[in-house]
Amino acid sequence: MSGLIKSSIARKVVMALSGLFLVIFLVLHVTINLASVISPEFFNEASHFMGYNPLVQFIMQPILIAGVIVHFVMGFVLELQNKAARGIGYVKYKGSANAPWVSRNMIYSGLVILAFLGLHFYDFWIHEMAYKYVEANPEDPTRYYAETVEKFAPFWRTILYVVSFVLLSLHLWHGFASSFQSMGVNNKYTPGMKSFTKLFAVIVPLAFAFIAIYHHLNPITH
């Protein structure tokens, strides 16, 4: 078992599985967020459910946070190993001749996403934890839409979010299909999977960016 944990292949499988788990979460996240544009009432209901359902709060949320931590800690471990494996670097290295930029710079797109998660957690998660558990406010199933729209009032925050979604797109562009290769799946469905990955990597971050820009441009007028 210890041999398996130390193995490069097992570590890549951990990256792939945690990555795919986060991809599934993204689908759920973007679906609920889209509701904030279409139906504020439904958005409030869904957000309240996610915020107060014990299964979501105490089982799914810790699993999600663990998934994020595993993905980026393993990413750092692999990156450090990879840097060490080269030893002395090349004077001239033409990486662009044989591999796309996105695949060679997953650590940088990942670091931007990690920094964004810091801001995102500060904006929503810490605020939510403080509201519920520190300030011990009573349940209010109608507050989420206004809180979300208000967050996107500052131009700087909207821009930071949109830039992060561009980097998320680049990360997904390589990472999604790549996770199947890491798990040993490379067959007649692979070209289709790669096409789907590119579609997914554009549509999901574009939807997130659209929601941020929409709320920035459509503030609640009192």
């Binding site: 990879n82 494996a85 591999a99 695949s103």
Partner: peptide, 24 residues
């Protein structure tokens, strides 16, 4: 199992699926 173990012991890096190896 033995070949991958030896590969890791030698200090080679991990695969990021960039595909550079296949091209070159």
């Amino acid at each position: 199992q033995n070949m991958v173990r030896q590969m890791d012991l030698e200090g080679f890096g991990n695969c990021t699926n960039t595909g550079a190896c296949e091209v070159e």
